[in-house]
Design a protein around this nucleic acid. Structure first.
Length: 566
RNA sequence: UGGGCCGUCGCCAAGCGGUAAGGCCCCGGAUUUUGAUUCCGGCAUCCCCAGGUUCGAAUCCUGGCGGCCCAGCCA
């Protein structure tokens, strides 16, 4: 078997899963879960986790991946986010079938298990204020002090805990704490909070509870209750694993399954922030248009921009899974996108910065139907009709009066091929006498060059065009990265991010011309505008209204590189 | 300088004691009615550093250095 036919090497998590299957650790089961907190929209970093969790499950017969909303904090969560998460996971191409769960769905069981912990002396109700608690926790180098309530009797703690549930106490007056070790070098083991009082309405359970479990307490137990075998999470939870195991150890007798937590490094992407808090700040500040602004690294933003699920999945696969801190180049994501779009996006022509050209050799009322393939390599994608008329638009930058070396577009007296049409020669440049600005070009075409090259001379350049009379107007939104620095996460300290924002992240081109056939292109449809890039009809485009295109990504541009090198 | 984790090409990433996979980027060149695509070719004598073990080390040992995470009743 040649190298290219071999399956790619397994990442360390898949190696563990494979080894567990061999050893029979979980009786042949592979069960993972994707556990988002519904406090924001999913982003490209979540895509990595989704692809990993659903991917690992799908790779094994009988493997399953649950969607579990980690909804233990009603203060930060909203139903809006639940909806978007479901939409985005499905859009990415994954299916949790009937297995949609909520941490809140386990609240009663979780509560009962907490009573068990108290009864067995593993947890106690602590009545320190948040402030006092912070001071008694110690520091990274100094051990904490034991709470005076640590020695409360089981009976008292149990009674207090029940009254906490009953709503007898205001927020912040008591918490349930694990009794572990205030001197532990691992801060998470210094008697961490398990339950806090929150008189808040929960999006799923309403006002049924005023007592909510913390992540550390709920997550491991939810995993166990769902029979999760491999609980995959990001590196910052590494220090929580001893607590994860500690809780499961104490409650072993009550549980059927014993999951294991494995951590991998989260995705960091150049020029983007991947933190729900920061993304939320961007939305709230109005710097972007919402969670689905095409400049956002959210799945909804990427979707609106024109990214495809296949491209994102491919990206996640190529990025790999490891524990190494990383900062992935945007070029990789864009490569994945272009690869998918090149294969699937139908071609079309659009002129973004129009320059009028009069083809003097064509009659004023001449309309000639030309056929253009929708894809140069894939005839199955069919063809469309273009209209050859006396007046056309070309891209302003495709004409140059004093061309640099190697410029192979239109120049005075020179010839170029108009894509899918004729070779034309520039006979005259019409300027505004006052300003000297170029108003239009007068060209003549060679009728013998429709699907043939001239026999006596070579014409190197090919440029795109659109009929001036048989086309429609469109708006094109051109995007750049939202941040000017490749490491905005690092540079973003406190709330001062304004200086990091790229002032050119959005440029609106309102005088664009597109092929007539694109007039009713549906929102979400993606085209390659030849020689320019990939463009996606904006989701907000109403039927019948002028089309608005988001530039998804540009084509590779080796000419731009040549020019930069000058 | 408490604890946990990480350090292989510009960016990702294989490698698990037998003499550095792959992808992206980049650089050449071919084909091309997209300066696109495609296609060929190039791109780590070296694996954070220094010692050591070994016939043999990126892989083992020792000691350094550098980076990330943790002091929420957030996740």
């Amino acid at each position: 078997m040649s190298r290219s036919e071999e399956s790619p090497p397994l990442d360390f998590i898949r190696q563990i899963v494979a080894a567990d299957l061999v050893s029979g650790k979980y009786g042949g089961r592979v069960v993972t879960r994707f556990p988002p907190e519904p406090n924001g929209f999913l982003h490209i970093g979540h895509a990595k986790s989704i692809c990993l969790n659903f991917g690992v499950a799908a790779e094994h017969p009988g493997g399953r991946c649950n969607l579990r909303f980690d909804d233990t904090n009603p203060l930060k969560e909203e139903d809006l986010y639940l909806q978007s998460i479901r939409t985005d996971v499905r859009w990415l191409g994954f299916d949790w079938e009937e297995r949609q769960f909520y941490a809140s769905g386990y609240f009663e069981r979780l509560y009962q298990l907490a009573e068990r912990l108290i009864e067995n002396g593993h947890a106690y109700v602590c009545s320190l204020s948040a402030e006092e608690l912070r001071h008694s926790r110690g520091t990274l180098t100094q051990p904490g002090r034991e709470s005076p309530y640590r020695t409360r009797s089981v009976a008292v703690s149990l009674d207090l805990f029940r009254r906490m549930r009953a709503g007898e106490f205001p927020d912040g007056t008591h918490i349930l704490r694990a009794r572990i070790d205030m001197a532990s070098p691992n801060m998470n083991m210094r008697d961490p909070a398990l339950y806090r009082i929150l008189h808040a309405n929960h999006h799923q359970t309403g006002d049924q509870w005023c007592l909510y479990p913390t992540y550390d307490y709920a997550h491991c137990l939810c995993d166990a209750m769902e029979g999760i075998t491999h609980s995959l999470c990001t590196l910052e939870f590494e220090d929580h694993r001893p607590l994860y195991d500690w809780i499961l150890d104490r409650l072993q007798a009550e549980l059927t399954y014993r999951p294991q937590q494995i951590e991998f490094s989260r995705l960091t992407l150049e020029y983007t922030v991947v933190s729900k808090r920061k993304l939320n700040t961007l939305v709230k500040s109005g710097v972007v248009d919402g969670w689905d602004d095409p400049r956002m690294p959210t799945l909804s933003g990427l979707r609106r921009r024109g990214y495809t699920p296949a491209a994102i999945r491919d990206f996640c696969q190529r990025v790999g899974i490891s524990k190494t801190p990383n900062n992935v180049e945007l070029a990789l994501l864009e490569n994945c996108l272009r690869e998918d779009l090149d294969k699937h996006a139908p071609r079309a022509m659009a002129v973004l910065d129009p320059l009028r050209v009069v083809i003097t050799s064509v009659a004023a009322d001449h309309v000639e139907a030309l056929t253009a393939a929708n894809h140069p390599q894939n005839a199955a994608m069919g063809s469309r009709t273009l209209f050859w008329t006396r007046e056309i638009w070309i891209e302003r930058e495709d004409f140059c009066e004093n061309p640099p070396k190697q410029f192979k577009r239109l120049v005075p007296g020179g010839e170029v091929r108009l894509r899918h049409a004729y070779v034309v020669r520039c006979d005259a440049v019409i300027k505004d006498p006052a300003s000297g600005a170029i108003l239009e070009l007068h060209c003549s075409h060679d009728p013998a060059t429709l699907h043939a090259n001239p026999v006596d001379r070579k014409v190197k350049g090919v440029i795109h065009w659109v009929s001036a009379t048989r086309s429609c107007r469109a708006e094109v939104r051109h995007y750049e990265t939202l941040f000017t620095t490749p490491n905005p996460d690092e540079a973003w300290q406190g709330d001062d991010f304004a200086a990091l924002i790229n002032p050119n992240s959005l440029q609106v081109l309102s005088n664009c011309h597109i092929e007539e056939g694109l007039r009713d292109a549906p929102p979400g449809s993606i085209f390659q505008f030849e020689r320019l890039g990939y463009f996606c009809v904006d989701a907000g485009c109403a039927a019948g209204a002028e089309r608005v295109f988001n530039r998804t990504v540009g084509l590779r541009d080796s000419w731009a590189k040549v020019q930069q090198g000058r």
